[in-house]
């Protein structure tokens, strides 16, 4: 249960960070700053990858859903 809570916290933190990165993508577009927008896009994809990993570790997705229980 402890690790489940840890993964849940990680997902929430990564989702919050992704929201911030999405705002940076918009800001990059508004400022015509490709580096900011592109960097935020790359970082958000990394965050999504980690979210998927956390969900998998929690047993919510993937072929072995019971693994996390």
């Amino acid at each position: 249960m402890g690790s489940q809570r840890l993964y849940l916290l990680a997902v929430v933190a990564l989702a919050g960070g992704s929201l911030l990165l999405a705002a940076l993508i918009i800001l990059g577009e508004l400022r015509d700053d490709s580096a900011l927008g592109g960097g935020a896009l790359g970082a958000i994809l990394v965050a999504y990858g980690l979210i998927v990993l956390c969900l998998r570790k929690m047993g919510l997705i993937g072929p072995r859903r019971a693994e996390g229980k």
């Binding site: 490709s34 580096a35 900011l36 592109g38 960097g39 896009l41 790359g42 970082a43 958000i44 994809l45 990394v46 965050a47 999504y48 990858g49 980690l50 998927v52 990993l53 998998r56």
Partner: peptide
């Protein structure tokens, strides 16, 4: 798996945008 597709694509884009590795 999806986690690696997302993370590695993100890493490649991130490296392309960062000042030192651009």
């Amino acid at each position: 798996p999806a986690t690696w597709v997302l993370a590695l694509l993100g890493l490649v884009i991130l490296l392309s945008a960062l000042p030192g590795t651009r």
